[in-house]
Each structure stands twice: as C-alpha cells, then as structure tokens.
Design a protein around this nucleic acid. Structure first.
Lengths: 350, 350
DNA sequence: GATTAGCACTCTCACTCTAAGAGTGCCAAC
DNA sequence: GTTGGCACTCTTAGAGTGAGAGTGCTAATC
C-alpha cells in the first residue's frame, strides 16, 4: 500500500473522527477538525482515491466516509501509535487485579473481569493450554465403593480433579497401589505424551486382578485427558447492547447468539493463536477486524487477543471483542497491561 | 377476588389471546375467537369492570386490553389448568438430560441447558445448599512446600476442594496428622455446625507446633466454609433478544445488565425460596410476576422456580426467567418435568 | 501537475399531514 | 342485564416537503 503522506494523514483522521463521533466523516468537517493546509476540494480528491483503494467507503451517496475493514487494517498496521497507559489508568487496573487468590483459574477469571470493566467491551480468556505441562502428583482417593476422585497436581501450579467410577469391589489399599504406580511412572511426563498405553503400562505390575485394574487405569487416563481440556471465560456480553454500533436489535441478537456458544468462540481463539504462530508473529497481540472474523454476527466487531504465559511452555489467551469502531491504541494497551500484570501474578504459582 | 363466571372466562380469554398474539385484545376479536353467547357490548362492560378491578389495562385509549400483573397473578392462581407434557415433549427432555455424567454439578448444568432449550427462555439453577450435608471425608494433600489441597467428600455425594497456603516448613507427615485429626472429629457433622472453634478443637492434640497448626486449621476451616457457598448457573440470556417483548433495546439492556450480576440473581432466588418456606407454600413451584420481582429491569418478566432435592435435607432451585407474556401452564410443566428428571438422576449420587 | 472555488446533484432525516383502522364509552332501547 | 348504535380517541403507515450535508465534476489558478 503506497500512500503519500497526506493520504495517510487523511485516513488516520477519518478513522479517529469516525471512532470518536460515530458519524460518517465529510471533507469539510475534516478541514475544521484538523489542520490540513489544503482546501476541502483537495481532500475530496484524496478521499476519492482512498475509496478507490478500498480503504474507506460511503454508507450512501451524500454521506461522509467511514473506514472499511481494509482501512482499519491499514490504520492498525501502519498508522496508529500505541501509547502507554497513564499512571492513573495503570493504577485502576492494578487495583482490580486481585492478588490474594490461591488458584490460577480464579486469577484468570479476575483478569477477564478487569478487562471487561476497563474496556467496556466483552472480554474473554482461555484457560492455560496444559498439554506441555507435566504431572507432579497424581492421587486416587476412594470416595465410596464404586467411586473415586483422581487428583492431579501439574507442573504449572494447577490442580485438577475428576470424580470417576471404579469397580465396587476394589478397596482402599488396592486403589492406593494403582495410584502409587501411576504416579511413580508418569511423574514428570508432559500431558500430551501420556496415552492410554502409557497409563496401562504404568499400572502393569500392580497385583490387582486384570479387568478391574484395566477399568481404573482407563478412568485415570480419562481424568488426565480431561485435565488438558480448554475452558473459556467470557464476560460482559451485555455491554455490547449499550454501544450505538449494536443499536439494531438484529445485529445484537446475532452477536450475542454467537457468543453464547462458548465452545465455538474457544475454537476460534485457538485458530487465531495457531495462525499467529505459523506466521511467526512477533507482535504482542493478535487482531482480527470485521469480516476477517469468520464467526457469524461479528462483522461489526474486532477481536483482539494477547498471549499470557503461566510457564515458558504453558500459555493461554486473554482478549477483547469490541466494535470495529474502537480506540485501537487504547484497547491494545489495556489488554497488554492486563496481560503483563497477569503474567507477573502467575509467577506466584509456578 | 369475586368474579362471576363470565368475567373469569373473559380474563382467561384475554390472557390466552394476548399471550398468543402479542396484540392488545379488543371486545370484537374476543367474540370472534371465543364462543361467548353475548354481544361485544356486554363484553365491553365486563372488560370495564375487570379494568376497574385492576386486572387488565389499556396501553392507550383506543387499543384493546392487556393483562396487568395482577391479572396474570389471578390467571396463574385461579384460572389456568396445568396440563401434563405430551409423551413426545417428555421424550424430548429425557433425551437431553445426560445421565452419564459423574458429578452433580455437571448434571445440574445439563438440566439448566435443557430447560433453556425447551422453554426458549433464560434458565437458571442454583447449586445445592450444602449447609445440612455432612462431612464424609476430609483430606489435606501437600502440593508443594507452602501449598496444600483440601479435599472434602460430602454426604450428598458432592466433592469439593480448595487450594490453600500453609506454612512452608510443614512436611507431609505433619499435614497428614492434622488432616486425620480433623477428619476423625468432624466426620458426620453438618457443615453449618462446623465453626472455627470446632475445627480448632478437632486439631488440638496433634503434636504440631502451635502457630503453624493454627494456620492450617484456619485454612481447613476456610475450605469447609467455601464448600457451602452457593453458585448459580444462568443460561440463554441471548434468547431474550429474540422475543418481541424485548424489542426495545433499552429494556433488553436493562434486563441483560441485571442478569449479568449473577450474585444478585442468586440472592433473589434464595429470597424467593425463603419466602415460600415461611408461607408453607406447598405448590411444586414458585412464581413472581412483573413488578413483584424486585430486581431492576425485570418488570416485563416472570420468574418461575422449583426446588430439586439432592437428599432430604439438601436442595437447590431450578427455574426460568421469561417474558410475563408466556404460556404459563406449559412452562410450569416443563420446569416441573425437568425437576422430576433431575431428582431421579440425583438418586445415583447419594 | 497539484490545488482550488464553484456549483449542480443526490440522498437522508426530521417534520407535517392525512386517512384508515381499531377500539372504546356511553346512551337509549329492549 | 343485555344490546345496537354512534361519536370520539388514538395509533400507525404512507406521502410529501424542505433543510442540510456531502459529493463529483469542471474550469481556473498556482
């Protein structure tokens, strides 16, 4: 995209004005609001050119221009400058991040909440991808005949558990043996290297009768697999209803309908993460604008995420879904700052 | 409320027609749609009377009538007849209730989901009130120096845990001793009879140095208290946006805004439950209509809940928030049937 | 070649006006 | 107590209008 300097400034100004006023921007009001040292006719020529390039568009013939998805993309990639949050804003966020919680999950939920409150948009976070974390402890506790609890402590400081069914006849001692054997053989192994075969061979030399043993091992395996399932936390969906961008009930309905399927949103966040890795993206954030988002009903939204790290190899995402018409530089710094604080807090757990 | 038979029929018909058409009901259309053997002028007199009694109202001078909150209340209390679901509808619900889950929480979430899908409204469930359930097991597992996991098995078949901080110097053996002592003394005690004093006296004769011991006991106590905290599961908020009753964005915003504060909703459900108990209500459901609901933004809603039982003394609520203008008899049977299925499934856990 | 002033043209938006339609309340008669 | 009749009220949809904002084009100017 080769744009001369003035055209860049014009696009920049159009995005800024449109974001702040939510009105299509005309050549005259551009002149009024900014100090271009040319006439409105000249800007009209520039604007025609920008429209020709697909960076801005008109809602109708006699309206001003609004940025297209491509225009926002250009703005985000090349034009905007990201400013640090003011100390005051930073303090506001720091106050909200609760550093007294004892579980990583609570910390993440807390950060999600903070992000929704500060941006005023929908915020979301994925639970950490635990595939690369390894087992530090695994205990099977008898709850009652036929039922046991598998408790796992993972290297990333995360505790997971799952209630499982076991054969009725098994006693405490037998369960302890199996539990001990699994722990002994699998401690230190990353979750994604643990398969049903690994678990079965770990329990091999326990003197528990074969079919019973096998069932317990299977359940233990299922518990381990469940531990690395991804969760997503979404918050602040209702905030979208207060934005003029979603004053049409239809759009709002489509948007909230899509967001209610949290599994789908989680899948999309993963897709973004993977795409960024493949591209070797070195930005601290990922961004998708308007139609770039393949989820239904998010055409008028932008989706911004960042990656937090629990350990070097265990990470997750945190981000925001807001209207396309947002103050990108501000929102990006907010996400970035929350992520930074989250990373700091997470050191306590590992 | 003494109404002669025809007036009752008129109110019944107005509610029915308004619920199905979402249009104010006029005297003429009442005659057309129902076989009253009188003229529209007579109905107009009856309607004037019903309006005088505050049971129906006019949106404006020349519109038909719509039921008032009081009218709906009369309808629900005295006029409607609740019909059983058809076998087909029952099957639909049975298919959705997943009987393979191993944890009570999952079962409840599943029932909530089912209820939202079948009614098309917002559904909600409260976690069981565990105050009256008693401790069956309590184990403290060392996770790493300074950190432990308190695992509790409760009489109602529920497993709870909490990560807690403990003094760094404590070793596995000391923790086991404390854990054993607590379990020995508190097993069988209902949660609401366990106080900090009880826990402290339970751990008294452990030979662990005083200040360290005290901290662990306090954390164990905190874990027990956290176990009986109430959770609420809300689902299907976005469905309200598809209803004509919330086609005004303002109303929709207020409603979803209120629902986003799940703690507040949970408090309200508790209040309903307590009020019903005090009144010795023997209905299988509780219902609040329009302004009877003290939550902001729910003026156009009705709130219906039922009580499920995990054990004789451990119960929770499940219900629906929908528009006032709903098919009460149908929705009530749906809630009732889901509750019944839920109760049946819960027997597996206790 | 870039910039500008001027102007005709287009489209939206807010307003007003109007007629149709639905429903009511009341009165006098049955 | 019930009914037919009728004047009255209020909403809604549609049509028409003028103001306002903005554009694109042309011809002149720097």
């Amino acid at each position: 995209m080769q744009l001369d300097n003035r055209k860049k400034e014009v696009l920049h100004a159009i995005v800024d004005d449109y974001v702040s006023t939510n009105e299509p921007v005309g050549s005259k009001s551009l002149i009024e609001r900014h100090s271009f040292n040319v006439s409105s006719a000249t800007l009209r020529n520039d604007m025609a050119e920008l429209e020709h390039l697909g960076l801005i568009e008109k809602p109708h013939t006699s309206a001003g221009r609004i940025p297209s998805d491509k225009g926002y993309r250009e703005y985000v990639n090349s034009l905007m400058t990201i400013e640090e949050l003011t100390p005051r804003e930073q303090l506001e966020i720091e106050k909200r991040i609760d550093s007294s919680v004892d579980e990583v999950t609570d910390l993440i939920k807390n950060a999600t909440h903070t992000l929704s409150e500060t941006t005023g948009f929908v915020s979301l976070a994925m639970s950490p991808r635990l595939k690369k974390s390894f087992l530090k402890q695994l205990k099977i506790l008898m709850i009652e005949p036929g039922k046991a609890l598998v408790v796992m402590v993972l290297s990333a400081g995360v505790v997971k558990d799952k209630v499982v069914r076991i054969p009725n006849f098994l006693n405490d001692e037998q369960i302890m043996k199996i539990s001990g054997a699994i722990e002994k053989h699998l401690t230190g192994k990353p979750l994604d290297e643990i398969t049903l075969v690994t678990v079965e061979s770990a329990g091999k030399n326990t003197d528990v009768p074969e079919p019973l043993l096998k069932q317990v091992l299977y359940e233990a395996y299922a518990a381990i697999k469940q531990a690395d399932e991804l969760n997503i936390y979404l918050e602040g969906e209702h905030r979208m209803l207060s934005l003029p961008d979603f004053s049409s009930l239809g759009r709002a309905r489509d948007l909230l309908g899509t967001l209610s399927d949290s599994g789908m949103v989680a899948g999309y966040v993963n897709e973004m993460e993977n795409a960024a890795r493949e591209l070797g993206n070195d930005d601290s954030y990922m961004i998708r604008i308007g139609q770039e988002i393949t989820l239904e009903g998010l055409d008028d939204c932008s989706f911004i995420t960042a990656t937090y790290n629990l350990t070097d190899s265990v990470s997750g995402n945190i981000g925001v879904i807001g209207p396309k018409r947002m103050l990108y530089s501000k929102v990006i710094s907010q996400i970035d700052f929350v992520k930074k604080k989250l990373n700091e807090e997470m050191k306590r757990f590992t």
